[in-house]
């Protein structure tokens, strides 16, 4: 279980998180929606120690991770895998080296087996036999995103954090990625926190949706309750879906 308690974060004069309170239960698919600059990605980066909050508390499975140092975040990062907005793959390394990056200290045979098992899970079965020959720049953007997800999943995190996973993808691929998030979460038993602008796919994929504005949660509920929400910002997102 993840808990954000009254979390504040400022960048210079700009307040990005302003008393964020959020609870994420194990096994659920939570979508965090909001306009740009409302602190959605910042929230995810706090969970893996890429940013530190100014005030408040973050608890992961009963452990307060707010004051951990860089070394202390090692186990946290194995528990929370972050899939970045950009694929963030190493261009000079092969598909195999990229996908097994997080387990590269394990024996080679184990790495190969793990990669062969994981690539089909993210819809990259065609790459499984050529993973030592292909490089990320030779893949489409959608394939790169799937590869980045496979790389994160191979570390076997309990929580998978998706930072705007469909940015730069066409609507069809975007739908596939959302389906993939759902499949991966259900099949592999992962908790998913997805930061997004896409209400349409959130309604189809999420177990629960929270809407963020000015660094705090202004609305939350199941997709059904969100559909009938009276919150202005939620209404704005829903109007976009109806168009």
């Amino acid at each position: 279980m993840i808990l954000f308690e009254d979390v504040h974060k400022r960048f210079g004069p700009k307040t990005v998180l302003n008393g964020l309170n959020l609870r994420v239960e194990r096994g659920e698919i939570l979508f965090a929606l909001g306009r740009s600059g409302t602190g959605k990605s910042v929230m995810l980066k706090h969970l893996v120690g890429l940013l530190r909050c100014d005030r408040g508390r973050i608890v992961l499975d009963g452990q307060d991770i707010t004051q951990l140092d860089e070394a202390g975040f090692g186990p946290v990062r194995r528990k929370c895998g972050l899939v970045f907005q950009l694929p963030a793959l190493l261009d000079s390394r092969t598909v195999f080296e990229n996908v097994t990056f997080g387990i590269r200290t394990k024996p080679l045979r184990e790495q190969i087996e793990a990669a062969r098992r994981m690539l089909p899970e993210v819809g990259l079965e065609a790459l499984a036999d050529r993973m030592a020959e292909r490089y990320p720049p030779q893949l489409s953007y959608g394939e790169q995103k799937r590869l980045a997800l496979a790389r994160t999943l191979l570390v076997d995190p309990a929580y998978v954090l998706y930072d705007e996973p469909t940015t730069g993808l066409d609507p069809a691929t975007s739908r596939q990625v959302h389906q993939l998030i759902r499949d991966v979460s259900r099949k592999l038993g992962k908790t998913a926190i997805v930061v997004s602008h896409d209400m349409e796919n959130a309604l189809k994929t999420a177990d629960r949706i929270v809407v963020l504005d000015a660094g705090r949660v202004v609305d939350e509920g199941t997709p059904d309750s969100i559909r009938t929400s009276a919150t202005t910002l939620t209404q704005d997102f829903l109007r976009e879906v109806r168009r």
């Binding site: 893996v48 950009l86 963030a88 793959l89 190493l90 997080g102 570390v155």
Partner: peptide
């Protein structure tokens, strides 16, 4: 380029 395309942060998040 690795820094601005999040490759460095991704490496850190993978425990390296």
């Amino acid at each position: 380029t690795m820094k601005v395309t999040d490759q460095i942060q991704a490496i850190r998040c993978l425990g390296v």
